[in-house]
Design a protein around this nucleic acid. Structure first.
Length: 809
RNA sequence: GCGAGAGUGGCGGAACUGGUAGACGCACCGGCCUUAGGAGCCGGCGGUUAUGCCGUAGGGGUUCGACUCCCCUCUCUCGCACCA
């Protein structure tokens, strides 16, 4: 038996699991498939972060728990090793990613992940940088392109001067590059896009039906940003028509001026000669501003008059057209009608430039004497011609839009904030976009037989800011022949966004042995969609949105028969250390290896899960892992007593039976709802009981071992073996509880007088009020409070409490 | 501003559909054991002017009874944000 020695136990079981293939699964033979997915990491040179461990362990517990409950659990792992994170790190350290990444992967897998005790099936590892994998990433691109989901266009893009590449909107956080935090600037460039907006509505609708963490769904809803309104056609006085988008067509009569975004193309045409110099100056100033500065909160409104007037279609009124940078070219039509009385932004602008403010919504039919700010509430339409007296908002919107629609001046319209996904990157370390440009045939997709387009080894892979990838400098890569006509042609030299690699990796795991298809139809049918996906919420509008979109697109292209990739997504919390965020600059990053070496992976896993609610996150305190190690010491001696042996039958004493069965019941429920901290607390209570009462019982020991197994797999496996089993504990089934035993024979009744606790009585369980009541009333502690009082009400809750409501006589 | 979540001892955190607030653990205090202890074991631990009273951010309300439900206010975290 001996002492619990985590280092020895863990080394032993790592070897045994590997030798026996305990965690390898025959995917075709599995009868109750359960696909347990965790977000594959980017293998950084710094090694595994404690946040990764926290995420993986929480997911692994579900995998192991499900396995104990009889599921065939598939729990794979891979590496997301393409992309700027790897490349930037290599650049900074003067190394080559192609030489660095394999070493990092090796280190992650062999020295770190394998020591955490995750139930991973390493026979199906995926590495996004291997040609066998990125061949299919390129295939995704080609498939999307052929089906009209990928296109190239010139448009203002987000350019990161630090990383020297364009970024997708999702990768710009508060105006900064997600990777290097440089301030992102706008540039006009020709780039590849995926039509994410094609499914904006579907992606939104399905959120109501999928079983995902609410905050993840909320983040996606915000990001997709649906708004309903109308597109209204105005005309320039003596000039062309133009469209504006508004959510409040009911306030059309309140429009006192119009605003075009400074980037609006029509401005060139309509601005009067006198106003042209002012406009040019204003446009130049607007262009020089960064996105963040331009959209800064509370920034003073700026703008310039164009000299032109617009004609309002509802009343033929002529109102001035201004250019102002508070209107964005990228949303709606890049032009708005300004209703200063009922929109705060327009109000601020009108005040500053002394433009008229006309009230058209009157709360309770009352006109304002003065408006200190825009009124955005309910009311009746006024100053609105035929529409006067109609309730504003819904009814007004309907009526005004319908009228204009009949005149061909408006359409009901829904706008989304979501933009198409800009996927090309002017970088080296990624899958080359498989497109060939031919003078005769145009842009041609590389035929499947020619995939992958291999990423050539470039000694100098530094991005040069030219707007082209470094691959452009490789003449032998750049020049090629057209797959259609055989004539001279050039390759697309941009690589695809790393998020394309990760948008489909989970389809690959079950099909890694198939070299001739990205995923096998039968395997996919059996194993997908993913049953449970656990990960960080920071990917809510990145990976999680992209992969939902890709799933839909692949479905539409006929490659998948479902539209949502994950049945259930659970967002775990974030961990901090001693109340502070962990960061390299603060120097407070937790190194998992040290704790694992000193206290063992099992104690480390358990402490990470004990810190707080898994879904909320937790606060890592030094000393916690040590405390958990000593709990495991106590558990070890409680389960494997040195002396006295173990009684082989169900414990006879009712109190022990109560603790055992109610713990099994509670732990089962806690694990199912990710309440790992309380599950551990309950196991501690059981062990406290067992230790204090010197319980030596095999039934108790085996149940404890099984309950601990998902949390601390190595030590559980060792104890299971020492209890005389030769097969893995994970084949042993999940313990059952006896509902009867979870009730006690005597219960503590709380006696309240007017809701305040005045006495506690131990009484047999299950008695009726008639039996209990006299005992309560006769109790001296209670009787004292009843002197000189009249009982006006008695509230009785069986086996719980009796509340006497009294009044003075 | 909009949306989501949260606010409980010295600390991390419990409390299932309203029913004993503070489970479990950390830290701390006392004791035992020991040549020694950053080990182990036993006990204590919300506050207080203690037969009681007050305590779950603050203020109201509903209820026999509120951390839990409703209204208002404050604070914090996250997401979105001059998005028309």
């Amino acid at each position: 038996m001996g002492k619990y020695d985590p280092a020895a136990v863990e080394a032993k079981w790592r070897t045994v699991w590997e030798e026996r293939g305990t965690d390898r699964l025959d995917l075709d033979k599995a009868e109750k498939p359960f696909y347990n997915l965790m977000m594959f990491p980017y293998p950084s040179a710094e090694g595994l972060h404690v946040g990764n461990v926290f995420a993986f362990v929480g997911s692994d517990i579900q995998g192991r728990f499900h396995r104990l409950k009889g599921f065939d659990v598939f729990e794979p792992m891979g590496f997301d090793a393409f992309g700027m994170h790897s490349e930037n790190f290599a650049l900074k350290n003067g190394r080559h990613p192609a030489e660095m990444v394999p070493k990092n992967i090796e280190n992650f897998r062999e020295n770190q992940l394998k020591k955490v005790g995750l139930m991973l099936d390493w026979s199906r590892q995926v590495d996004t940088t291997s040609p066998e994998y990125y061949k299919w990433t390129q295939w995704m691109f080609v498939t999307l392109y052929k089906n009209g989901f990928a296109y190239k266009k010139k448009a203002p893009v987000n350019w990161c001067p630090g990383c020297k590449t364009v970024l997708a909107a999702e990768q710009v956080i508060d105006g900064e590059c997600e990777r290097c935090t440089s301030t992102v600037v706008k540039k006009d460039m020709e780039q590849w896009y995926f039509k994410t907006t094609a499914f904006a509505q579907e992606l939104l609708d399905e959120l109501d039906r999928i079983d995902w963490s609410e905050r993840t769904k909320t983040a996606q809803r915000n990001w997709i940003g649906r708004s309903q309104g109308a597109e209204v056609t105005f005309s320039v006085d003596g000039g062309p028509d133009f469209q504006i988008f508004t959510t409040r067509p009911d306030t059309l009569f309140g429009a006192t001026y119009m605003v075009f975004s400074p980037e609006h193309p029509l401005l060139d045409q309509i601005t009067t000669p006198e106003q042209r110099p002012a406009l040019s100056e204003y446009r130049a100033a607007a262009a020089a501003l960064s996105e963040v500065d331009r959209q800064a909160e509370g920034r003073d409104k700026t703008g310039v008059f164009t000299g032109a007037d617009a004609v309002n279609p509802v009343n033929n009124e002529r109102i001035p057209i201004w250019a102002a940078d508070y209107v964005l070219m990228g949303y709606g039509t890049g032009a708005i009608m300004a209703v200063p009385a009922h929109d705060q932004r327009d109000f601020d602008f009108a005040v500053k430039f002394n433009l008229p403010i006309r009230q058209v919504v009157a709360p309770d039919g009352k006109m304002f004497d003065a408006l200190p700010e825009a009124y955005v509430g309910e009311g009746l339409l006024v100053n609105s011609g035929d529409f006067n007296g109609l309730p504003a908002k819904e009814q007004g919107i309907e009526a005004v839009t319908t009228r204009l629609k009949e005149q061909g001046r408006a359409e009901f319209k829904i706008n989304y904030r979501l933009r198409d996904w800009c996927v090309s990157r002017q970088r080296y370390w990624g899958p080359p976009i498989p497109i060939i440009y031919c003078d005769k045939c145009g842009a041609v997709a590389v035929p499947e037989k020619d995939l992958p387009v291999t990423l050539p080894y470039l000694e100098d892979y530094k991005p040069d800011g030219s707007g082209f990838s470094p691959l452009r400098r490789d003449e032998s890569f750049f020049h090629t022949t057209c797959p259609e006509c055989g004539g001279p042609a050039t390759r697309e030299t941009d690589v695809s966004d790393n998020f394309l690699c990760s948008a489909w990796y989970f389809y690959r795991y079950p099909s890694t042995e198939f070299g001739d298809r990205p995923f096998d139809a039968a395997r996919t049918k059996k194993w997908l969609p993913v049953d449970l996906y656990v990960g960080g919420n920071e990917h809510a509008v990145l990976h999680l949105l992209y992969s939902r979109w890709l799933c839909r697109a692949l479905n539409q292209c006929g490659h998948l028969d479902f539209v949502e990739p994950y049945k259930r997504f659970v967002a775990h919390g974030m961990i901090v250390r001693e109340g502070a965020k962990m960061s390299k600059s603060r120097g407070n990053v937790i190194n998992p290896d040290e704790y694992i070496r000193e206290f063992g992976a099992d104690a480390f896993r358990m402490y990470l899960m004990f810190m707080g609610a898994y879904l909320e996150g937790g606060d890592f305190r030094d000393g916690g892992v040590r405390a958990m190690k000593s709990f495991l010491d106590r558990l070890w001696t409680a389960v494997l007593p040195e002396e006295g042996g173990l009684a082989a039958t169900e414990p006879e004493d009712a109190e022990t039976r109560f603790w055992l069965h109610s713990t099994i019941k509670a732990v089962t429920a806690d694990l199912a709802r990710f309440s790992y901290n309380t599950a551990i607390a309950r196991l501690m209570e059981l062990i406290n009981h067992v230790t204090k009462n010197r319980v030596r019982n095999r039934v108790v020991s085996e149940a404890v071992v099984k309950m601990v197994a998902p949390l601390a797999p190595h030590v559980a496996e060792e104890m299971w073996e020492q209890l005389g089993h030769s097969e893995t504990v994970f084949a042993g089934g999940w313990p059952e509880w006896d509902e009867e035993a979870t009730f006690r024979a005597t219960v503590e009744y709380v006696v309240q007088i007017n809701g305040k606790v005045r006495a506690k009585l131990d009484l047999p369980a299950g008695l009726s009020q008639e039996v209990i009541e006299p005992q309560v009333l006769d109790n001296p502690a209670v009787a004292k409070w009843l002197e000189g009082q009249t009982i006006v009400k008695k509230v009785y809750v069986q086996d719980k409490l009796m509340n006497l409501v009294v009044k003075p006589n």
